[in-house]
Structures are given as structure tokens and as C-alpha cells.
């Protein structure tokens, strides 16, 4: 464990807590894409299949349970909780996210580190996570007024993988034979997808204006 990875995990945890806070306290999921949340459920479900077979540390297992539990409960809230579901803008959240899964599974079957079920599923979850934010970013461009909590949620979600990139650089230089091109490239693509969001988020923070993405 290094500080970059810990910072990444804490940022990721913060993003999930911000979203749960928004949904649970003000009972609103306005501006939040259910499609992105559903993709994240699949990302965690396929990423943590080995939660019962491979033990790394208490911390690792605990965080896996937190990410699994929170992502499932966010989808449950947005689908089945009456008050929250009412605030979900279904007409705007129309990204065909199931179509995102197909290329990811095909790519995972083609490019992976080992051709085993666990490894292909793990690689699939990496590719899927890289594009999981797309429905949310598309919804953001359609939603005129983005509330602060949603903006903070996306900012933290994008930031966590940025810290992971620093962690991979650190581990590359400190651990011999630590090379994981698949993880690195999909992590880089994932972070680059947030580039324009980060730019407009920074502008809104600098000019102290509401965050607005150009349509």
C-alpha cells in the first residue's frame, strides 16, 4: 500500500458517500445517471468475484464489501425507492449502456493477462469501468443545472483513478516486475474521459459560477 493508492481509495469512497448522502438525505437523484450506477454494480460484481477465494487484507476485503454494498443500494434507491425514483429523469438518461458491455466483454476475451474465467471477468470489469461514466457525462450535458453534490460526486469519481495512475507509476519504480499494461491503459483512458469535465469543473470553481457543460 502507498499513499497514492490510499488517497485513491479514500477519494473513491468519498465519491460513493457523497452520492449516498445526496440520495439518502435529500431523497433526490436528480442529475444522476442510473445507467452509470448499474454499470458500476456490474463493474464491482465482476471485479470482486474473488472476494471469497483470494484474501489480500482486512482493508481490501472491507473496501470491496463497501463498494459492492453501496453500488447495489444506490441502484436499489434509484429504482425502487418511491421518493428517490420520482426525481430520476428517465427521459434524459437514455444512453444505451448495455451496448457498452458487448465491446468490453469481447475485448476482455481477446486481450487479457491469463485466459481464466476470473481473469477475463476481472479484465472485463476494468474495461467496463473505463467507460462506465459515459452515460453520466451525457446526462450532465443534457441537464442544465447540475447541483453541487452531483458535481462533487463526478469530480471525486474521476479523481480516484488519477491517484491510481500515480500509484501505478510509484509501484513500477519501486517493485520489480510490476507491469500491468491492461490496467494502466484502461485506467488512463478512464481518467482522460473526465478531462473536459475537470476543465469545466475547474472553471466553475475559479469563476465561482454554477457548473455548466456546453451542450
Amino acid at each position: 500500500m502507498n499513499i497514492f493508492r490510499l488517497a485513491g481509495d479514500m477519494t473513491h469512497l468519498a465519491s460513493v458517500l457523497v452520492l449516498l448522502l445526496k440520495i439518502h438525505t435529500i431523497k433526490s437523484c436528480a442529475g444522476v445517471s442510473l445507467k452509470t450506477q448499474e454499470l458500476y454494480v456490474i463493474v464491482f460484481a465482476t471485479r470482486y468475484l474473488d472476494i471469497f477465494t483470494s484474501f489480500v487484507s482486512i482493508y481490501n476485503s472491507l473496501m470491496k464489501l463497501i463498494f459492492l454494498g453501496s453500488s447495489f443500494s444506490i441502484v436499489w434507491y434509484m429504482r425502487y425507492h418511491k421518493a428517490v425514483h420520482r426525481t430520476y429523469d428517465r427521459e434524459q438518461d437514455t444512453f444505451r449502456h448495455w451496448f457498452l458491455m458487448l465491446p468490453c466483454i469481447l475485448l476482455a476475451l481477446l486481450i487479457h493477462e491469463k485466459f481464466t474465467f476470473f481473469e477475463v471477468m476481472w479484465t472485463f470489469s476494468l474495461y467496463l469501468e473505463a467507460v462506465a461514466i459515459l452515460p453520466q457525462l451525457v446526462l450532465l450535458q443534457r441537464t442544465r443545472n447540475i447541483d453541487n453534490l452531483t458535481g462533487q460526486y463526478i469530480f471525486l469519481l474521476g479523481g480516484y483513478r488519477g491517484f491510481y495512475i500515480l500509484n501505478w507509476i510509484y509501484r513500477y519504480f519501486t517493485e520489480p516486475h510490476y507491469v500491468h499494461w491492461i490496467t494502466w491503459i484502461s485506467g488512463l483512458v478512464q481518467t482522460l474521459l473526465y478531462a473536459d469535465f475537470f476543465y469545466y469543473y475547474f472553471l466553475s470553481w475559479k469563476n465561482n459560477k454554477k457548473l455548466q457543460l456546453p451542450a
Partner: peptide, 10 residues
């Protein structure tokens, strides 16, 4: 309990 090399990250 087997630990996959490289899968020690979340």
C-alpha cells in the same frame, strides 16, 4: 486462499 498476483488493488 490464493492471492492472484497483481490483483491486490481494488
Amino acid at each position: 486462499l490464493v492471492t492472484e498476483p497483481g490483483h491486490d488493488e481494488l
